[in-house]
């Protein structure tokens, strides 16, 4: 089908972490052709193609226009597929194979999760829905 381009504005400079990513300059506009739920979006500009972090982009139409889901305080059961050690004080440290509840699926790919009494951010790419068989 046709590729729908959506234009976003870069909110801060970003230096790419691999050859398949792009450097970003604050204020420039980028066209996005694919949005991965893990927070990496694919940018296709005139001469540049590569992955960029959604967390460094805002919609051109203004912050009112959002595709983000509302938080679900009841929580949705997920299992961690990889351990992660918190680097910021609003993140959680977990081991592989822990069951947690997802409260808010943020487009930036860092979801708000709950584990017992604790709430914090965790990379969505290290989570899979509880009860689903992991792809081989």
């Amino acid at each position: 089908g046709p590729i729908i381009l959506q234009t976003y504005r870069v909110i801060a400079d970003y230096n790419k972490g691999s050859k398949y990513q792009l450097n970003l300059k604050e204020g420039e506009q980028v066209d996005i052709v694919e949005k991965s739920t893990n927070g990496w979006w694919f940018c296709q500009c005139e001469s540049r193609r590569g992955w960029v972090p959604a967390s460094y982009l805002e919609p051109l139409e203004g912050p009112d226009e959002t595709e983000e889901q509302e938080p679900n305080y009841a929580g949705e059961l997920f299992v961690t597929t990889k351990a992660y050690t918190a680097e910021q004080d609003d993140e959680l440290t977990l081991q592989e194979g822990e069951t947690i509840e997802v409260i808010h699926k943020l487009l930036e790919g860092w979801w708000v999760i709950r584990k017992g009494e604790q709430t914090g951010h965790y990379p969505s790419m290290f989570l899979r829905k509880s009860g689903e068989i992991r792809a081989a």
Partner: peptide
């Protein structure tokens, strides 16, 4: 490859933006 997103978590939003959201 170019077709697959990076396998490491993306960066958190810039600190100024995180503060603004709270």
């Amino acid at each position: 490859s170019m077709k697959e997103p990076p396998s490491n978590p993306p960066p958190r939003p810039p600190a100024e933006l995180r503060r603004k959201r709270q």
